[in-house]
Amino acid sequence: MEELFTSGRNIPNIDPYLQIWHWPISVYLFLGGLAAGILFFAAIITILGKDKEYPTAVKKASIIAPIALVIGLLALFYDLTHKIYFWRLYTTVRIESPMSWGAWVLMFITPLSMLWVFSYYSEIFPKWGLKYDFLKKFEKFLIANRKYMAYALIPLTLILGVYTGILLSAFNARPLWNNAILGPLFLVSGLSTGAASIILLSKTKKEKHLFGKIDLGLIIIELALIVHMIMGFYAGSEVQLEAIQLLIGGDFTVLFFGFVVILGLLIPAIMELIELIGYKLPAMIPAILVIIGGLIFRFVMVEAGQLTRYLY
């Protein structure tokens, strides 16, 4: 039997367990993934030349991306404790630090997403035409270069999507985070929430149908990755075995299995499948469930991860 006491230590936010990253970080990771998903589909559809057939994906849904990115960045900023030095993020590039290259990727992708939306300005807001000539010229220029923007967006969105997971998985001090699946898992989950938002906004049956299919595929991949993650933990060291207990038989089991796996993945997958077979179901419901599930998943991972640690 071993017992460990630490005397005279009760540091705020550190003891008895870490509370350094709060809800803004979960929101930031969720919105980053969502924006990555939306922009990824907008770019792919543009490159394939299908933008006329799937207008929501390239136009209406893409408005969400810059808004999500800006809110996400504000959330991140809100959780910094030494805010006046925020600019220090952009005076160095530190490849070893996910926080650093993530900040740089956001630096590129946020303005690019704004330019993307601006290139559709006249189509999205036909009533409020552009007043100034130079703005009209600029829009024309952007329209002409939309394909190039799309080519740039593909790698950037994939990096952004993976980054939201790697930001956590790079910490070996927090065993629940320290698994290599988290990067791809958050990427797929981000793509899935992106597809779900397109379904939510879309008016045409064809578009809803296509993104329903895409979303179903993504959910299946996501479920497979979650199984893979849990198996990886069970094959791991003692700290990892202890960490996964939080999700399997601990404080986060209800949130994880109830809200993320069942309500956020299984039920939407079944509903999308039923729809695919030909029955009529409101496409809104699975889409909303996927989005809420994605958000709760980020919360569970950020909160639970900080409870796990090395015991020595």
């Binding site: 550190i14 870490l18 350094i20 910094l80 404790t81 030494h82 805010k83 926080m99 790079a170 001090a173």
Partner: peptide
């Protein structure tokens, strides 16, 4: 130079760091 992002606190297996009240 520190922005108070907390990444280093998360990364320390010994919980040896803390946020100073000044941030």
């Amino acid at each position: 130079e520190c922005i108070g992002c907390g990444a280093c606190i998360e990364s320390c297996p010994y919980d040896a760091r803390y946020q100073h009240p000044e941030g």
